[in-house]
Design a protein around this nucleic acid. Structure first.
Length: 560
RNA sequence: GUCCCCGUAGCUCAGUCGGAUAGAGCGACCGCCUCCUAAGCGGUAGGUCGCAGGUUCGAAUCCUGCCGGGGACACCA
């Protein structure tokens, strides 16, 4: 008897009662006194059947066959809730399922539809900052969630390697380069002042010497631009690798100009009849498609605004077969959403394409005070700084544990703490602890680790802590499905923390100094085997959840 | 001014389809202790869910208005 079985049973009975196709929601009540599963159907059905909720509940209860396997009791409570108490055996079936499915427990079927997830997409004009880090963690986790729920996921990084910003970068490098050789030149007005540009200029000087000081060929700026972009891309890749994020494709904005896609987009937009000239510029009538106002697409100096390559880029996504596309971006890009969608809609793509996950900013606090620590004087805090400070897994987890649309306060004190008060360690400890018990058990009898759970006396796991823990484990696939649907990795953090908390409480309750009867390694072989099966199930769920978020599930903790 | 997001315990936050007495972690307070190796364990206190209306059997959740915080509103990217 699993939840789905009960749901089917209830739906059948409802059909007999004159309410076919009525959605039955079964959930695990917060309060254990309300049973193992509960439903509010009697209340949601009250108006449809024109009967009081409690009367419906009573009929429903009476129609459930007495002694139905797995059901121990059915109770009516409150305004008309139906509370089900299941037998220990029914609950323990979850363990069998978890151990049979192993590392795929939590994965859903899905039809393998293609989805493109674009994230990070930093300009190659500096090192990755904390916002990029949050985006890297979020994008990667959302990608994994969709993979877990059966999507064919493609991770993509879009490089804005064309345009004015890159020119500013090149000009800044040239200024630093000339300064390096003692010339009195100023950085451009809107140039980059950080130390990164100086390092690039010095590296360039090391490689090329002073031969571009008096640039007779006129190619100097271009050479510097390429050098700087290559260099920064390499630096960013280094950080992304360290962060454990891999992309299927790095898409270069410059390629959109090279292969004529930007020009073709202009033509297509003109052909759509939504383009007009005004004040010497070319405008796109995005307000016709829900944008707040029309936007310039070609400036009066003849150059394109960012809008054009952005639309051209998304057209390529569509043409590459991605009917679903998700862009993970900082909330400061909010303003571009409507106009890009408008452009795409004018070209025949569906309304609302692509989907956006916009996340809020990250601030770092220590001692309740915001800190801007940077190992590079005068620069912002980089992702690299943070990873070096607290480690990859902690950084990833902290970036994921809040919902994207909420501002994220990164608490350095908590991040640096290696005790259970740090949620990352709490979950890892719980996993390592299960591994530790299993090692110990295997030393006595290795068979415990592989025995088929089907034949075990799992119904003996009837302590409240065990029943609740098992049901918590059983909810994991639902949480994964819901988190994927809502693009909300923080729900996985939530369920992992809850599970780890229950696991630790269960484990500690069996401490010899407290209640040896609850010890996993109980002298009674039947009970011990059942608890070891639960231990394996816990390890499986924690490992799957950690893996889904891109974190290590350590078999033993090593003091850092 | 217009648009988007946020406002829940001292702090950081869950609470997505409206449901039972609004939850967790940290911190605080009170106990215990060295334990199936785990940088501890158990318990207690702590709330006008920003405010005011509305919808309904029922609202933290949905609707409207207001207040407060953040962000976006270029021929920038």
């Amino acid at each position: 008897m699993q939840r789905d079985d009960l749901k089917t049973l209830l739906e059948g009975i409802l059909a007999e009662m004159g309410a076919p196709e009525h959605a039955v929601h079964l959930e695990r009540p917060r309060d254990p006194a309300h049973g193992d599963l509960a439903t509010n159907v009697a209340m949601t059905l009250a108006s449809r059947l024109r009967r009081p909720p409690r009367a419906i509940a009573e009929e429903l209860r009476d129609r459930i066959p007495a002694g139905h396997p797995g059901i121990r009791a059915v109770e009516i409570a409150g305004p008309g809730f139906l509370n089900f108490r299941l037998t220990s055996g029914a609950i323990a079936e979850t363990i069998v399922r978890i151990l049979r499915e192993g590392e795929v427990f939590g994965r859903g079927p899905g039809e393998g539809r293609k989805v493109n997830i674009e994230f990070v997409s930093a300009n190659p004009t500096g090192l990755l900052h904390l916002g990029h880090g949050r985006q890297a963690a979020l994008g990667d986790a959302i990608a994994s969630l969709l993979e877990w729920t059966g999507w064919d996921v493609h991770r993509e990084f879009y490089y804005n390697d064309a345009g004015r910003q890159i020119e500013r970068l090149a000009e800044s490098v040239r200024a630093r380069y000339e300064q390096h050789f003692g010339r009195e030149v100023e950085l451009p007005e809107d140039g980059y002042h950080g130390s990164t540009v100086r390092e690039i200029a010095e590296a360039f000087a090391d490689v090329e010497g002073d031969r571009w000081l008096d640039d007779e060929s006129g190619h100097g700026l271009e050479v510097m631009r390429e050098f700087a972009v290559d260099r920064l891309r390499a630096e960013q890749d280094r950080d992304l690798n360290a962060f454990g994020v891999r992309f299927n494709l790095y898409f270069l904005e410059s390629s959109l100009y090279e292969d004529g896609r930007v020009d073709r987009t202009v033509e297509a937009l003109r052909a759509s009849g939504n383009v007009y000239e005004k004040d010497g510029a070319t405008w796109f009538a995005s307000s016709r498609f829900g944008d707040q106002k029309d936007r310039v697409m070609i400036k009066s100096d003849g150059s394109a605004t960012y809008f054009l390559p952005d639309v051209a880029y998304h057209i390529t996504k569509w043409e590459r077969g991605f009917e679903d596309a998700i862009n993970v971006q900082g909330a400061d890009h909010h303003g571009t959403v409507a106009r890009v969608r408008a452009g795409l809609q004018a070209l025949g793509l569906p309304e609302g394409y692509p989907e956006y996950v916009l996340h809020q900013m990250v601030t770092v606090e220590r001692d309740g005070q915001e800190v801007k620590f940077s190992k590079r004087a005068g620069d912002y805090t980089t992702l690299r700084d943070l990873i070096e400070e607290v480690g990859t897994d902690v950084t990833r987890y902290f970036f994921l544990m809040r919902k994207p649309e909420a501002h994220l306060v990164f608490d350095l004190d908590q991040a640096l703490d290696q005790s259970d008060t740090n949620p990352v360690y709490k979950v890892k400890y719980a996993h390592a602890r299960m591994c530790s018990i299993l090692r110990k058990a295997a030393a006595d009898d290795a068979e415990f680790l592989t025995v088929d759970p089907q034949g075990l006396a799992l119904e003996r796991l009837d302590h409240p802590a065990e029943r609740e823990l098992i049901q918590q484990l059983g909810s994991f696939p639902d949480v994964v499905a819901r988190a994927a649907e809502a693009r909300a990795p923080h729900l996985i953090c939530e369920v992992l923390e809850q599970t780890a908390g229950q696991v630790n409480a269960w484990y500690h309750a069996g401490n010899p100094s407290r209640d040896p009867e609850l010890a996993v390694l109980h002298p009674d072989p039947e009970l011990r085997s059942a608890r070891l099966a639960l231990t394996r199930a816990v390890r499986t769920v924690l490992a799957n959840g950690l893996g889904l978020l891109g974190l290590e599930a350590p078999e033993r903790m090593v003091r850092a």
